[in-house]
């Protein structure tokens, strides 16, 4: 009743959620095994053991554009074309409708 059966496999979110919570509990348990006796406010809490300066958090924020810069760069050929198609010009919007209508008519005529 609770899960769904697609004919190929089954999906039961309650079982999944229980499993997920169990894994989270195990992870927290492992984390709790860590040492608590480190010295606060000394070099032990610094990020870099090598003694580098820690940058200000404002300088570390990855801005929206930068996050997938590499992916966009790798697919720049596709993106250049896809962008060029989204011209924002109303005449092109109409042209796309007419072209699609033409294709549908051809398919219906051929498929009849």
């Amino acid at each position: 009743m609770n899960g769904i059966n697609s004919g190929f496999g089954a999906w039961n979110p309650l079982v999944w959620t229980a499993l997920f919570l169990g894994i989270v509990a195990v992870a927290l348990a492992i984390r709790a095994l860590g040492r608590k006796d480190y010295k606060k406010k000394t070099g032990q809490t610094k990020v870099y053991l090598s003694g580098n300066e820690e940058p200000e958090p404002e300088d570390l924020h990855v801005r929206g554009d930068a996050l997938y810069w590499g992916m966009v760069e790798a697919l720049s050929g596709y993106y250049r074309r896809a962008r060029a198609l989204h011209t924002g010009i109303l005449s092109d919007y109409f042209a796309w409708i007419i072209v699609t209508l033409g294709i549908v008519f051809v398919l219906l005529a051929v498929g009849r």
């Binding site: 924020h61 929206g64 996050l67 997938y68």
Partner: peptide
Amino acid sequence: AVFMKVFQAAFLGP
């Protein structure tokens, strides 16, 4: 990926 970007850019960070 897209919504990771939005969440990171808008809500996370300083």
